[in-house]
C-alpha cells in the first residue's frame, strides 16, 4: 500500500480547471490510479473537485462547514470505491451523485433545511428593478436563487454552473429525466417572478 506524507504540495493548476472543462479522460486516469491507492492521483482529483463540490454543496446546505464535511465524506467514498466506477457515466456525474446523496442525508439528519425567511441573504434584499451592473445582477440572482426550492436551485446549478446534461442531472439526483425538466421549468418560472427585469425573465 502506498504510503507517503499526509499531503503532497498543492497542485495549483488543479484548482483552476473550469468545472465544465472536458477533463473526463484525465479524471478517469486519476481514478484508475486511485484504485491502486495512488495518493498523489487521489489528491489531484480532490483538488479538481473541491471547488465545484464546495460551491455546489454550499448552495445545497447553505453552510460551508457542513459542505466541507460532505466533501470529505464524498471523497472518502471515492477513495474507497474508485474501483467500482465502471465508466458508464462521466466521472463528474459519479462524484456529484455521491456528493448529492451524502448531502441529502446530512440535511435530513441535521434538519439543516433553512427556510427562505432565514437566509443569510435577507439583508441583501435590493430593488430588483434597479440593478445596473454585473455585480449587482449577480447579487440579485444569488438572492433569487436562494429563494428557490432546493431541488429547483440544484438543477439550475448543475445545468448552468457545472454544465451537466439533463440526463446526467437525472442520474446525479436519482430521478427521472422528466422530473429534471419539470424542476427546471418551475425554477425558471419562479425566477421570472423574482427577477422580472433580470436574466431569466422572458419577453412579455
Amino acid at each position: 500500500m502506498t504510503r507517503g506524507p499526509a499531503v503532497e504540495p498543492l497542485d495549483r493548476r488543479a484548482e483552476t480547471i473550469p468545472a465544465s472543462a472536458p477533463t473526463n479522460e484525465h479524471e478517469l486516469e486519476l481514478l484508475r490510479r486511485t484504485t491502486s491507492r495512488d495518493r498523489d492521483a487521489f489528491q489531484q482529483l480532490y483538488l479538481i473537485y473541491h471547488r465545484r463540490l464546495a460551491r455546489f454543496l454550499t448552495r445545497m446546505t447553505r453552510r460551508y462547514e457542513v459542505a466541507e464535511e460532505v466533501i470529505n465524506d464524498t471523497m472518502w467514498i471515492v477513495w474507497q470505491r474508485a474501483g467500482d466506477f465502471r465508466g458508464s457515466s462521466q466521472v463528474s456525474t459519479w462524484i456529484m451523485g455521491i456528493a448529492y446523496r451524502r448531502a441529502l442525508k446530512s440535511l435530513r439528519r441535521a434538519s439543516l433545511q433553512i427556510h427562505a425567511a432565514d437566509l443569510d441573504t435577507r439583508d441583501e434584499e435590493t430593488d430588483a428593478g434597479a440593478a445596473v451592473d454585473d455585480a449587482e445582477r449577480r447579487q440579485l440572482v444569488g438572492w433569487a436563487l436562494a429563494r428557490l426550492p432546493l431541488e429547483q436551485r440544484l438543477v439550475l446549478e448543475l445545468t448552468y454552473y457545472l454544465g451537466h446534461s439533463c440526463e446526467e442531472i437525472a442520474e446525479i439526483m436519482d430521478c427521472p429525466v422528466n422530473t429534471v425538466k419539470t424542476r427546471m421549468f418551475h425554477a425558471r418560472r419562479k425566477l421570472r417572478q423574482l427577477l422580472p427585469a433580470q436574466p431569466g425573465h422572458s419577453v412579455e
Binding site: 499526509a6 499531503v7 495518493r39 460551491r55 472518502w76 425566477l191 436574466p199 431569466g200
Partner: peptide, 28 residues
C-alpha cells in the same frame, strides 16, 4: 435571457476556497 443567467451564475465565483486543511484531514 437564459444565456445571460448562465453567464451570471458562472461568473459568480468570487469565493476563494481553501482545500488544503480539509484535504489534510481526509488524508489523516
Amino acid at each position: 435571457a437564459q444565456a445571460q443567467l448562465r453567464e451570471l451564475m458562472r461568473s459568480d465565483d468570487r469565493i476563494e476556497y481553501s482545500p488544503q486543511p480539509a484535504l489534510e484531514k481526509l488524508m489523516s
